[in-house]
Design a protein around this nucleic acid. Sequence first.
RNA 1: GGAGAGGUGGCAGAGUGGUCGAAUGCGGCGGUCUCGAAAACCGUUAGGCUCGCAAGGGCCUCAUAGGUUCGAAUCCUAUCCUCUCCGCCA
Length: 422
Amino acid sequence: MLDLKFIRENPKIVAAGLSAKGVNINLEQLLALDAERRSILTEAEELKAKRNASNDEISRCKKNGQDAAGIISEMKAISQKIAVLDAKVGGIAEKIEKEMLYIPNMPTHDVPVSKGAEGNKVVRSWGEPRTFGHKIQDHLDLATSLGWLSMEAGSKITGAGFPVYFGMGARLERALINFMLDMHTRKHNYLEVWPPSIVNRASMRGTGQIPKMEGDMYRLGEDDQGNGDFFLIPTAEVPVTNILRDTTIEEKDLPVKYTAYTPCFRKEAGSYGKDTRGLSRVHQFDKVEMVKFVKPEGSAQELETLVQDAEDVLQALELPYRVVLLGSGDMSFAAAKCYDLEVWAPATKKWFEVSSCSIFTDFQARRMNIRYRNSQTKKLEYVHTLNGSGLALARIVLCLLENFQDGSGKVVFPKALQPYLV
RNA sequence: GGAGAGGUGGCAGAGUGGUCGAAUGCGGCGGUCUCGAAAACCGUUAGGCUCGCAAGGGCCUCAUAGGUUCGAAUCCUAUCCUCUCCGCCA
């Protein structure tokens, strides 16, 4: 969420940011509502001040045994007037808040402005895309023939896009999760967290998946009041970031760094036919996520180290990858700046996004009310939040299978992973 | 799922209709004392919104949402959450 005061004072900057993100919001109308709200609010508050003064007077009269009937009847009328004005203000405020939830975060200055993915820039790459002297199979054929994976079994028990892993395929999932968690906790100093995979509406709203992307989420339960209903998490970002919702963090405790493994559930309606073969786009997958809460100053650098933490995993897995800075039009709703890590899959002949590392500046923190006391200003200020995949499993499995096959239908996994596969 | 107790400031904990945004203690911050520290003592210490160039005003908030009343932390209703006990259960 943006600061309404910021929008009021910088409508041009906000309009530019909206257009960079490709979002159409009627700012004039929003600001007109805001002005109307404040004007009625002032009127109501003046009456309330009057009422408070009169209440003191009534109290005094009663104590002295004097008659206060005159003032009381006068106050009755004023209270009614206040109720009318309060209702008006409440109605307008509700409209404003609703609209505010649809305003995306502003991109930072170093993000290329673009309509969509065409503005993305490869900022660096690591490793050489592998060449093979033998014929290679794509991950689906390979894993299926090895008996490690069955898309059919998953579609029978659930539906399309729910893989079932067997034997070494299943073990590989478990190995990757342990390997990544070990690296982030031991080498990168994240605190391991094991959160719920089902969250409530407030949590989804906090990180920004809702209201805009509600259609992409699996929802559980019925509700008519907007509460009490639950969602399957699309990413560990949701439960892990919401751990600190409505809290004030001690400045000395920043940065807070969490890492968590969770399954992830995504409906992604409308994505049919696009990169859907095998493990490239599935409705349930596993992921190890990193989440950071940091002070605003220096937060840009925190994104760089976050990306490095994710790159560290790829390098240990010996997977050639490139780092892509997303253009404004390709970034998610809440992100201010985002890097994707893409790994080359030599059989499918595509770069696969296996990590997305973003900084949300104070956008999520404002939605979630996560603050810290700035020792310089002595004020409570919003923290900055960041998160990144470290990494997303189904696609990493895809990339490992396609990169590490030996031509005889076997797979020789990278050294770093082998202790976990014993 | 059933029964009970309870939700007040960073924490603990008073407060049952009228100077209560809230006693007191702890903690935090500033100071006195000290070579320094501890102790002691003194002072200070919620957040949000809004008006104003500013100085400084005003309004709101005692889980949440309604209600009663001239007036609600205090009374009523609903919801949520926490704890204890019972039941069920991997």
